[in-house]
């Protein structure tokens, strides 16, 4: 907040967007069609600047995906969704010894996945993203880490509505962890499922308009140091 002069309201907008997005999700724990920025700002303070509605709750849940090789995929489906790239990266344990305002480990993981997927310009080529959002500010942090916008720009895109489901770059159309819930180790599974549903046109009420072609999902872990990234493409 200090480095980029980000307003608390802009961070709260993420929570509002995701909790509203989750309304169409059958597994959602925290969907709320009527939540407002004021609700978030007025929720109880946990550890300032983090408040109750800035946080996703720990949830029970499981996710499963089935991968198969290109050779046999046509036995099962006519419209596969391809896993185009994966990347992972870990930073030092000593988190108190580094900058905390830009997640370099996310950008390194993203670069690995984009390289594998042949994505040269992520901002143009990626249609939507499911970054990890256990706290609302982490979505903004991770958008920047995923190289989807310049440093410090994510709050502005959010304020302008670009990251809404019908915006130019929908972020967490599933409702993310803030809306669906945070099933600790199954979060990347949850995000990968959403990529599959969106790319295969099976997301129902949550479907992003305009047939998205490429989606990216990301998870975060450990003590502010670990990121995994997955890119999927419509067949």
């Amino acid at each position: 907040m200090t480095v980029y002069d980000v307003k608390k309201e802009d961070i709260a907008r993420v929570s509002v967007k995701n909790k509203r997005n989750a309304v169409g999700h059958p597994c959602a724990q925290l969907a709320d069609p009527n939540i407002t920025v004021e609700d978030v700002l007025n929720s109880e303070i946990m550890a300032w600047p983090v408040q109750r509605l800035d946080i996703s709750p720990p949830s029970d849940g499981a996710a499963a995906l089935i991968y198969c090789s290109e050779d046999i995929v046509r036995q099962y489906t006519d419209d596969p969704v391809w896993v185009d790239g994966v990347g992972w990266n870990i930073d030092s344990t000593m988190w108190t010894n580094r900058d905390l305002y830009f997640p370099r480990y996310v950008s390194e993981a993203a670069k690995m996945a984009y390289k594998m997927a042949g994505i040269h310009n992520p901002r143009k080529e990626i249609d939507f993203a499911e970054p990890y959002d256990p706290f609302d500010y982490k979505e903004l942090h991770h958008m920047e880490g995923l190289l989807l916008c310049d440093k410090g720009q994510a709050p502005i895109l959010t304020r302008e509505g670009v990251t809404q489901r019908d915006g130019d770059l929908p972020i967490c159309p599933s409702g993310g962890l803030l809306g669906v819930g945070n099933p600790i180790a199954a979060t990347m599974g949850q995000k990968a499922c959403e990529l599959y549903w969106q790319l295969s046109g099976k997301a129902g009420k949550r479907q992003i308009p305009g047939d998205p072609m490429v989606g990216v999902g990301q998870a975060w872990g450990d003590i502010m140091q670990m990121a995994t990234v997955i890119c999927m493409r419509r067949g």
């Binding site: 990347g87 992972w88 990266n89 870990i90 930073d91 030092s92 344990t93 000593m94 370099r104 480990y105 390194e108 993981a109 690995m112 872990g221 450990d222 003590i223 140091q225 670990m226």
Partner: peptide, 19 residues
Amino acid sequence: SIFDEFVPDQIGAVLRPCC
């Protein structure tokens, strides 16, 4: 509770793919 976090430094994996 998350041992992964204590791994990268001593195996040379800082800012590298590590699991």
